[in-house]
């Protein structure tokens, strides 16, 4: 029984640590979306802690009170079929909890899928974030610049990320600004974020995508609109332009450091925004078609090489 109590104490302390851990990345939000999610997480965690405590207490009472060693030797446990009232309550209370959480869940779904709260009337900054093995390419079509593996964003302005992948499914995630979303090959997904506070944040691909997955990270820097504009100006003056040959080179599997370009790859290799249905592609998509078959050929070449090594 001592062991059991020790166990119980360990679990309780873990729950306390969890609830007290405001500094954990996900529970330390720097934007409205992440804030909503963090408050949802704390709410459910507290409710669930309540349920856990009820179960623990009931279990301990039963185990202590009805141990064989505490009963007379001739005690015959009764035959009890069950009671519709008791079972009704056992169904009813969880139904109420689930109903409440469902309402919260549905509300949050619509909140995280639309423009961040408090930012509705501001013009969003559109950034195309596309992943390749194992890098992130950030294209700023309005500013006409492109970066690799780092992301500069203005604060106090909604951000609209348009995500897609040049290879396996990846997941774009900046935990302190909001939740993650998949980047896939066939179509573009949208993620609405915003940063309230200036600072450096961790961003990464959260979805396993092969050998270089662990290092598939990027740095996020949130700065004031003024600083952001200055940075854009600086890039335009100093960076080299991106072209098709250069971009093909970037797509090769591997890791790259930070890179900066003027222009975006969207001009010659557009995002797969219009073929949700995946039917016959328009003329303009032939490029990306060729690109896919090229990379496909390349991987089959590689396979061939493996066998001949």
């Amino acid at each position: 029984m001592k062991l059991k109590m020790a166990l119980f104490a360990i679990m309780m302390s873990i729950v306390t640590v969890l609830t007290g851990c405001e500094q954990l990345t996900v529970l330390d939000p720097k934007g409205p979306q992440a804030e909503r999610l963090a408050s949802d997480i704390m709410l459910t965690m507290l409710m669930m802690a309540g349920i856990v405590i009820v179960v623990f207490v009931m279990l301990v009472i039963m185990l202590v009170k009805y141990r064989a060693s505490k009963q007379p030797a001739d005690y015959e446990p009764p035959h009890i079929e069950g009671n519709p009232w008791v079972e009704g309550i056992l169904v009813g209370i969880p139904v109420l909890i689930v109903a409440f959480l469902s309402i919260v869940s549905v509300q949050s779904n619509y909140i995280v899928e639309s423009a961040p709260q408090g930012y509705e009337d501001k013009e969003p900054l559109v950034v195309y974030a596309s992943s390749s093995n194992w890098k992130w390419h950030f294209s700023y079509p309005e500013e006409d610049i492109e970066t690799v593996n780092y992301l500069y964003i203005p604060t106090d302005r909604p951000l609209e990320f348009r995500l897609y992948s040049h290879g396996p499914i990846t997941s774009f995630w900046i935990p302190q600004l909001g939740g993650q979303k998949y980047a896939m090959n066939a179509h573009v997904t949208k993620l609405h974020l915003a940063a309230d506070v200036e600072g450096e944040y961790m961003g990464r691909n959260a979805n396993f995508s092969g050998e270089g997955f662990a290092e598939n990270q990027f740095d996020v820097t949130a700065m004031s609109q003024k600083e952001f504009d200055e940075w854009v100006e600086e890039v335009k003056e100093t960076a080299e332009p991106i072209n098709e040959a250069k971009f093909e080179e970037l797509l090769e599997p591997g890791h790259l450091g930070r890179m900066t370009f003027t222009g975006t790859h969207l001009e010659f290799s557009p995002a797969p925004e219009h073929h949700h249905e995946g039917d016959k592609y328009e003329e303009e998509h032939n490029h990306s078609d060729e690109h896919h078959s090229a990379s496909r050929k390349e991987s089959s070449d590689r396979k061939h090489m493996n066998y001949n090594e």
Partner: peptide, 26 residues
């Protein structure tokens, strides 16, 4: 009973689809 209950309630937390944007793949 107690250990599985812990797993069960975290399952409910994961079922909150918006919050799952933060739990998923972690």
């Amino acid at each position: 009973i107690p250990l599985f209950t812990l797993g069960g309630v975290t399952g409910v937390m994961l079922a909150m689809s918006a919050a799952d944007y933060q739990y998923h793949n972690t």
